[in-house]
C-alpha cells in the first residue's frame, strides 16, 4: 500500500471517528458539554481563518470581529422568519427587502461568508498597500467602522437592541461539517503552489517580488478568503448563541481569535485547531476555581474573576516557554506519525 492510499484511508477513518463521536455526543453529553464542543469547532474555524491571513501570509490584521459581525448579521437576517422580524424591530420598522429575505441554513452561511469576503475585498485594495503594524491599525479601524455602521443602521440591524431568537441551526453536525470544510480547504490551499507563494510573501516580501510574484494579488486573495471563513464563523456563532448585537463584535473578540491562533502556533494548521480546543475548554473548565471549595474544615468562598487570573497565567506561561505557540510552525501529519525521519513534512 503506497503512502497516498494509506493517508487517504487514515483521513477517512479519522472523519468517520469524528462523525461517530458527534453521534455519540448528541445522545450522551449534556447540553452544556455540547455547547462547549460546538464552540470548539466555531473557534477553530475562526482561528484557521486568521491563521491564513496572519500566520501564513504575514498580514497583521485586526479586523476579524468586523467580518464576523457581517457574517452573523447576514445569517440572522436570512434565517429569521418574517414574523419574528416585524415584531422585533421596535425602533424602526425593518426595511424591504431585508424583511422578506429568507434562505436555508447552508445557503445563508455561504452568503454570510460571501458578504464578509466582498467587504474584505473592498477594504483590502486600499489597505493592503500598508504593511506591518500600520495594517493592524487600519484593519482595526475598519472593524470599528463596520460595528458603528451596524449600530446606526437600525432599520436593517435593529441597532443597539440586537437580534434575538435566531434559529439555532448550528448543531454539532453543521459546526463540525463547516470545520471540516475549512480544514480541508486550508490544507489544500497551504500545500498548493498558492500556499508556497503566501509563505514566501510572509518570509520576505521583497524577495518574493523579485521572483516576479504579484504579491499584492496574492495578499488580496488571502485576505478575502480569510474573511470568508471569518464570516462563516461569525454566522455559526450567531446561530449558536441565537442572539447578537453590535457590542458583541468589539475589539475584544478579535483579540480572542488572535489568542487561539497565537497560542496554537502562527503558521500551523494543527496549531490553530489545538489552540482552539485547549483555550475554549480551559476557559470553561476553569470555572471550578470560582466555586466555593471546602478543604477539610476550611471553606474558601468563590471569587468571581479568579478564572481569568489563572487563565492569563496559563497564557503567560505558554508565551514565556513556547513563544512560537503550542505547535510552532510544525504540523502533525500522517507522514510525520508513521515516518519519523520526515517529521514536519507535507500534510496529507
Amino acid at each position: 500500500m503506497n503512502r497516498k492510499t494509506r493517508n487517504l484511508a487514515l483521513t477517512g477513518i479519522a472523519i468517520a471517528l469524528l462523525a461517530f463521536f458527534i453521534w455519540w455526543a448528541q445522545g450522551n453529553l449534556d447540553g452544556y458539554k455540547i455547547q462547549v464542543t460546538n464552540l470548539v469547532a466555531v473557534n477553530a474555524i475562526l482561528a484557521l481563518s486568521l491563521n491564513l491571513i496572519y500566520g501564513f501570509t504575514g498580514m497583521f490584521s485586526l479586523g476579524h470581529a468586523g467580518f464576523m459581525a457581517l457574517g452573523a448579521y447576514v445569517n440572522a437576517l436570512l434565517t429569521l422568519t418574517q414574523d419574528q422580524k416585524t415584531t422585533m424591530w421596535i425602533l424602526d420598522p425593518i426595511a424591504w427587502p431585508f424583511s422578506v429575505m429568507h434562505a436555508p441554513f447552508f445557503l445563508s452561511v455561504v452568503c454570510a461568508g460571501l458578504v464578509a469576503a466582498f467587504v474584505a475585498l473592498l477594504i483590502a485594495i486600499p489597505v493592503l498597500r500598508l504593511g506591518g503594524d500600520y495594517l493592524g491599525i487600519a484593519t482595526l479601524g475598519f472593524a470599528e467602522i463596520i460595528r458603528v455602521v451596524l449600530t446606526n443602521l437600525s432599520s436593517i440591524t435593529n441597532g443597539a437592541l440586537g437580534i434575538k431568537g435566531i434559529p439555532g441551526h448550528a448543531n454539532l453536525w453543521w459546526n463540525y461539517g463547516w470545520f471540516l470544510i475549512t480544514l480541508f480547504f486550508m490544507i489544500r490551499l497551504i500545500n498548493s503552489n498558492f500556499g508556497s507563494v503566501l509563505k514566501a510573501i510572509r518570509d520576505d516580501e521583497i524577495a518574493a517580488k523579485n521572483m516576479g510574484i504579484n504579491t499584492f494579488f496574492y495578499k488580496v486573495v488571502s485576505f478575502t478568503v480569510g474573511a470568508f471563513f471569518a464570516g462563516v464563523g461569525g454566522a455559526l456563532m450567531g446561530s449558536l448563541t441565537t442572539t447578537i448585537d453590535p457590542k458583541m463584535f468589539s475589539f475584544a473578540l478579535t483579540f480572542n481569535v488572535l489568542m487561539f491562533t497565537v497560542a496554537g502556533g502562527l503558521g500551523s494548521i494543527t496549531g490553530s485547531v489545538i489552540g482552539s480546543i485547549v483555550i475554549t475548554v480551559l476557559l470553561e473548565w476553569l470555572r471550578i476555581v470560582e466555586n466555593p471549595v471546602t478543604i477539610g474544615s476550611f471553606e474558601i468562598p468563590g471569587i468571581p474573576g479568579m478564572r481569568m487570573v489563572l487563565f492569563s497565567l496559563a497564557l503567560i506561561l505558554i508565551i514565556l516557554f513556547r513563544r512560537e505557540g503550542i505547535m510552532g510552525m510544525k504540523e502533525i501529519t500522517w507522514d510525520g506519525i508513521f515516518d519519523r525521519s520526515k517529521r514536519g513534512g507535507k500534510s496529507e
Partner: peptide
C-alpha cells in the same frame, strides 16, 4: 493528523466532566 486531534478532543471533553 486528524486522528490525534479527535483523540485530543475526546480526552479534553472528558476532562470537563464535573462532580
Amino acid at each position: 493528523m486528524k486522528l490525534s486531534k479527535v483523540f485530543l478532543a475526546v480526552l479534553l471533553v472528558f476532562v470537563l466532566v464535573g462532580t
